[in-house]
Design a protein around this nucleic acid. Structure first.
Lengths: 230, 230
DNA sequence: TTGCAATTCAAACAGTTGTATGAAACTATC
DNA sequence: GATAGTTTCATACAACTGTTTGAATTGCAA
């Protein structure tokens, strides 16, 4: 029953266009043109533009989270309930990095869409991301089991930094390539995953952080700019 | 000559509104209402909306970059031309983190604006950020002097990760607070800077990365979602 | 004061946006 | 094949967007 053809065509077209041109300058009219469906179909099938975007993002997020948890579960079973810290972090950042980077990234609309979502952060997506906390808590729990001695705060910081490195690598992939003049190989995904995991493990295994002096800040008013670059 | 009053009022109002509500839903009409000036004044003084945003961002970026280079220069002079790696990284991430985090963050419109710019990434800002590469190269050069043995690629990755941690901390400040239930103190900026620097140094000082097995990826089509959360 | 340029202003422009409507076309069930 | 429910369609709507216009006003120099 009920032709899913229109619905799927809209989803596919929307994901492709958003991936290619960003959320900012893709309109519903662009999407329906690409999908060869009527303009009203979007609101009929999804209710609103935001709900369409949300559905796109939720679908892909669920897939990633599922992968993460599968990998985590496998690692914990292998270790008899206690996965080593590097396996946990590998399960955390691996799926995301593998999904968004890699040599076949050009062909994967889903990956390019997720990169966009990571860069642009439009309201419906932001709303969904805020619910990711529960998912991350499962990794914190696993990390706590792997490193019983560690302060909780250190675990949170470790997880935070692991996500920081993986997301920032995805977001700034091109800038890093440009900066390093190709010396950083963004196609060797496994090497990147290992690097991120390795640094994260060092961050977690490293010593306590010292406290130091106070900062200095000044309120800088806006002056007139005379044709200066960055 | 030429009343800068209108110009400054627009800059101040725009920065405040963008900081509070984001680029997405602040219109020129909102800005001129807040600034108590005429609508046409924006185009008269800045040419276009994008040029207004660009000027806001360039001003603040220049200030940060200036701070960074000053700190770097001071460290190099102190070390007789060769600054230690942790001082270099401190100069890199310190100004940004101090500018955007900290207890007085609430009062600083400039800081809140830069956080927005970091989160939303609107076209005129993206264009400017792409020119930041030259600025970063100065830090790569300093790092090369501090660690002559290291591969260039490792240096790039180290700098990349340092920026990743500092930017992600700024972007996800609230999520980390929520996730850690307040156990990560986002107000102790110096501690955060030290933590980021310390991890970055470990990343740079750590051993080489091994290579491993190949990844597996599958093309996941969009199905119908039945009221599922993330 | 006169003259000229810089600035302000109200108003309109031209285009785009997401959404709503109501009739038409289709589909499956009886 | 009539009926009821679903889906498609062309079209209009209403609101909002950044930008432009040309006249009014202001400020400063001669």
């Amino acid at each position: 029953m009920s032709s899913d053809r229109t619905r799927s065509a809209i989803l596919a077209a929307a994901e492709r266009l958003y991936a290619d041109r960003g959320f900012g300058d893709v309109t519903l009219r662009d999407i329906v043109a690409e999908a060869n469906v009527n303009l009203a179909a979007v609101n009929y099938h999804f209710g609103s533009k935001d709900e369409l975007i949300a559905e796109l993002f939720v679908t892909r997020s669920l897939a990633t989270n599922r992968e993460r948890l599968n990998e985590l579960k496998a690692a914990e079973e292998k270790g008899g309930g206690r996965a080593p810290i590097d396996s946990i972090l590998h399960a955390l950042v691996g799926p995301t990095l593998r999904g968004c980077l890699g040599p076949d990234r050009e062909g994967s609309t889903a990956a390019r869409f997720m990169i966009r979502a990571s860069i642009e952060s439009v309201p419906p997506i932001r709303r969904i991301k805020n619910r990711e906390v529960d998912h991350l808590r499962k990794f914190i729990a696993a990390m706590r089991r792997a490193m019983p001695g560690r302060d909780d705060a250190d675990l949170y910081w470790g997880l935070h930094f692991a996500l920081a490195m993986s997301h920032h690598t995805i977001r700034e992939k091109e800038r890093l390539t440009k900066l390093s003049e190709g010396q950083c190989d963004l196609n060797d995904v496994d090497a990147i995953v290992d690097r991120v995991v390795s640094v994260s493990v060092m961050a977690l295994a490293g010593g306590e952080m010292p406290a130091k002096k106070a900062p200095a800040r000044s309120a800088v008013p806006h002056g007139r700019l005379t044709r200066q670059d960055l």
